[in-house]
Structure formats: structure tokens, C-alpha cells
Amino acid sequence: MKPAADLDPLFRPLLPKYLAARESECATLHLALQQHDFEQITDIGHRLAGSGSSYGFPAISAHGRALEVAGRARDGDTAGAVIGELEALVRAALAHL
């Protein structure tokens, strides 16, 4: 997955740091899901929704919003599926750097 073509050139050097942080955040999300910590899932989802598109990854924002909704609904199945997809997205983005 490549970042949006219109991403500001000033933001491009920040991508490795951003994606690496998201990768470790996926591990945090898996753990939160195991512990049924839906508050943390909601918070992380909210932050991803705000930051993904800013870094040229609208798909990360969309998954963030989905996580936020699933977290609020305490819907573990949906949250688990979204976390899996998010992890794959982040890895794909990292592979394109």
C-alpha cells in the first residue's frame, strides 16, 4: 500500500516512524482485545482515524473509525477482524517504503 500521491513532501520523511509506531500499536491492540480492554481499542481507533489520512493512508483512517465503533459497541469479533486487516495494511505500507 502506497501513501496518497498528494501527500505533502514535508510529511514523507515521517512515514517510517509513523508506520513503525502503528505496527507496534497492532500488538497493543491484540493484547487489548485479549484483555477485553475496549476503552483502549476505542482510543487507539480514534487516534488512527485522525492520523491515517494525514499521513496519506485513508484506509488506516477508515479502519481506525471501524475500530472506534467496534470498541464502543464492545464488539470483540469485529474488532479482531479489523485489527487483522489493519496489521496487513501497515505491513504492506512498510514493504513499499
Binding site: 514535508l10 515521517l14 487516534r47 492520523s51 499521513y55
Partner: peptide, 17 residues
């Protein structure tokens, strides 16, 4: 902002200014 990634963006953008 509690999200460091947003602060990073603001810093990169405004430091250039």
C-alpha cells in the same frame, strides 16, 4: 495533542515555516 504522530506532522510542517 495526545497523539504524537499529529504533533510530528505539525512540527514538520511549521518548522519548515
Amino acid at each position: 495533542d495526545d497523539d504524537p504522530s499529529i504533533c510530528d506532522l505539525a512540527e514538520a510542517c511549521l518548522t519548515a515555516d
